[in-house]
Design a protein around this nucleic acid. Structure first.
Length: 448
RNA sequence: UGGGGCGUCGUCAAGCGGUAAGACACAGGAUUUUGAUUCCUGCAUUCGGAGGUUCGAAUCCUCCCGCCCCAGCCA
């Protein structure tokens, strides 16, 4: 109203297509709308009737009267109010006009008393309009708009519109899907605030468009998690091991394990050893190369915090798949050290039949296979990683995890950092999410 | 070919006229009951390019090159 009265805004009846033509192009100036000199009184009347719903959507708009020949297209009499006959959450159906973002932006900043209004690079061209509006409309102060580059991470998408598409097309299981870079998602995934703050500090703020390596984020995460996460043992892909020289009478033994090797103040816990234990399928290889420090026929390894065991026999099913190992243990190595000074190259994590409970584990990986999903295809959903979620059933975790608090970080030794899922995990059915893996030098070396 | 931005290591990023920080990645090595952690060591004679100013330039000037954004009654 103020702008109209000052002769700085007018109701324009051009159609959308006409307005586009009148606007000119990047290199040619635009030309004035025939309605540009409409008298103030008429503008006031028309605007009132727009508000009241006397016109259909698109019939006319309110435009700021600035400069149709400006090299900045945003200044060529931008639309500031248009008719939209939709119900407003607050004013319901009494107002049929809605302001454009550019009109609202500066004014709401000013009303809120904001001193600096931060936004992204694409609004740089809008700043003259932002300032124009603040100069022409009576507001308590004149905030300063400053633009910065948005943060891009590789192997994911960050824009709300794209994330919305992923949610709506069911490519993910909702806004809090742990694969999504949403607050709800990364929280459920187990990301910590401290890690994210540190990450933000490290990457800095600039006007340069960049794409940051998620590896950096993951590193910040590991740095924090390594400090705070208690260690625990879990076997994801189980391979049964029978200790043949352990009594068959159901004898179990309690052993003591450190909650954090570098932080004795985090205490210890009891773990249970018995005749039947499980190790990771990956930790056994029938024809192992010398550099393979784990279990193989005839080789001896340490079961962490327990005993040295030696593989005596391999049991396979009819398809030739290894289903069970028969081993012997050395009673003298209780706790994991050999009195004769004998050294062993590998230490494996394990879990015993009696000391563990079943669990489901969600292995999350990057959502996209492409570093820049938006650029590498006309449809970014084509670059989705089919293995961004691998759900493992039948895992076994040590019993101390029965009362794991949702979203609290644990390190599953030798595997990564995990947390109980805040939605799906219960004491009857434990569900853990992998936050991030441990750094795995062996995986890198073994692949070449 | 109008206007607005941006260009320093593979990826981020300090630096603002006094002779290229740091982090991640990468490559070696040491310690290790997690092939984890930790710890050493190496990694831009050069800052998009070319000229110029200066005792001295990534920093100042000129020209050039490359990339991004803008022609919604979207935000």
């Amino acid at each position: 109203m103020e702008l109209i009265k000052k002769g700085r805004a007018y109701v324009c009846s051009l159609t959308a297509e006409e307005m586009r033509e009148y606007r000119g192009t990047l290199t040619e100036p635009g030309k004035d709308s025939p309605d540009r000199e409409r008298p103030v009184a008429e503008n006031l009347d028309l605007f009132e009737r727009m508000k009241n719903g006397e016109f259909e959507d698109g019939a006319c708009v309110l435009r700021a009267k600035i400069d149709m020949s400006s090299p900045n297209i945003n200044m060529r009499d931008p639309v500031i109010y248009r008719i939209k006959k939709m119900s407003h959450p607050r004013t319901r159906d009494t107002w049929c006009i809605y302001p454009m973002y550019d009109f609202t932006h500066g004014i709401s900043d000013a009303l809120e008393g904001v001193t600096h209004s931060l936004c992204t690079l694409e609004f740089q061209d809008h700043r003259p309009l932002y300032d124009w509006l603040l100069d022409e409309v009576s507001v308590p102060c004149h905030p300063q708009q400053i633009e910065f580059a948005r943060m891009n991470l590789n192997y994911t998408v960050m824009s709300k519109r794209k994330l919305q598409k992923l949610v709506e097309k069911n490519h993910v299981d909702g806004w809090d899907d742990p694969r999504l870079p949403t607050i709800a998602g990364i929280r459920r995934r187990g990301y910590t605030p401290a890690a994210i703050r540190n990450f933000c500090n490290i990457i800095g703020v600039s006007k340069k468009e960049s794409r940051i390596d998620v590896g950096l984020l993951e590193n910040c995460l590991r740095e924090d998690l390594n400090e705070i996460a208690p260690r625990v043992m879990a076997v994801l892909d189980t391979l049964k091991v029978t200790i043949e020289n352990w009594p068959e009478d159901g004898k179990t033994e309690e052993l003591e394990a450190l909650n954090h090797p570098q932080k004795p103040e985090m205490g210890t816990r009891k773990i249970i050893f018995s005749r039947t234990v499980y190790i990771e399928q990956d930790d056994f290889m029938e024809n192992a190369p010398k550099k393979f420090f784990r279990l193989a026929p005839g080789r001896e390894v340490r079961l962490r915090y327990a005993y040295f065991i030696t593989c005596k026999d391999v049991i396979k099913d009819k398809d030739g798949k290894v289903v069970e190992l028969v081993c012997t243990y050395d009673p003298a190595t209780r706790g994991g050290d050999s009195p004769d000074g004998r050294k062993v190259k590998g230490t494996l994590h394990w879990v015993s039949q009696e000391g563990s409970v079943p669990a489901t584990v969600n292995l999350y990986d990057r959502l996209f296979i492409s570093e820049d999903p938006e650029a590498d295809s006309d449809d970014f959903t084509k670059n989705l990683n089919p293995e961004s979620l691998v759900r493992l059933e039948g895992c076994r975790v040590e019993k101390s995890l029965l009362n794991a608090e949702p979203e609290k970080a644990y390190q599953f030794e030798r595997l990564g950092y995990f947390c109980a899922d805040s939605k799906d995990s219960s004491e009857d059915h434990l569900v853990f999410n992998r936050t991030v893996t441990l750094r795995d030098t062996w995986a890198k070396v073994s692949q070449r």
